[in-house]
Computed example of a mutant assay.
Amino acid sequence: MAERYSSFTPGGTMWLLQRVTAAFLVVVLAFHFFLLHFVNHADEVSFLASSARMETLSYYSLMVLFLVTATFHGVNGVYNALINQGLTGRKKQLIKGALILASIVLIVQGIRTANAWAGGFPL
């Protein structure tokens, strides 16, 4: 019988964060689909309407939290998948650094974009 292998320590912090972020993403994606595919149909979605939604602090905050959560969840998943495939040593450190740098760039650019759509929240 094959043994189960995972780079996540069951019950560890990263294991827990991966599950919590997954649950959060499911809820936010459901909200997204409901709001933008059932309440507002595709022909009603416009840049102006999106900008108006982003001007409300609650929607803006949810989208920024969604950005940070999705980035963490995705990068953490990719990193652990690579470790599960046997990534070790110097390559592991280089990949980790590259993923952290890519995450920072993605989050900063995402917040800049959200700020532009929201009319310039000072963040």
Results as ranks from 00 to 15, higher is better:
R90V: 11
A98E: 05
D43K: 14
L48I: 08
I104E: 01
F31W: 15
A98H: 01
N76T: 02
S103P: 06
A42V: 14
L82Y: 11
L57K: 08
H73K: 11
I111L: 07
L17Y: 09
L25T: 00
G86K: 08
T56P: 01
V45R: 12
G119W: 03
A81T: 10
A30F: 14
T88L: 10
G77Y: 07
V28P: 04
L17Q: 11
H37T: 08
Q85F: 13
G86N: 14
K91R: 09
A81Y: 13
A30R: 04
Q85A: 14
Y79L: 15
N115K: 04
S103N: 04
S61Q: 06
A102K: 00
E44Y: 05
G97F: 04
L57Q: 04
I107L: 05
L101P: 01
I104G: 05
A102L: 13
A42T: 14
L48A: 14
S61P: 00
G119C: 06
T113L: 15
R53V: 03
L87H: 04
A98I: 01
R90T: 07
L29G: 12
V26E: 03
A118R: 10
S58T: 12
R19I: 02
Q85V: 02
F47M: 14
L57P: 09
I104F: 07
A52Q: 02
L25H: 09
S58G: 11
R53E: 11
S46Y: 08
Y59R: 06
A118K: 07
N84G: 13
A116K: 15
L67W: 06
V26N: 06
G86F: 07
I104K: 00
H73L: 06
L48P: 03
L25K: 05
F47P: 04
I111W: 08
G77E: 07
N115W: 01
V105S: 02
L35Y: 05
R19N: 15
W15I: 02
L25S: 06
N40E: 07
S58A: 11
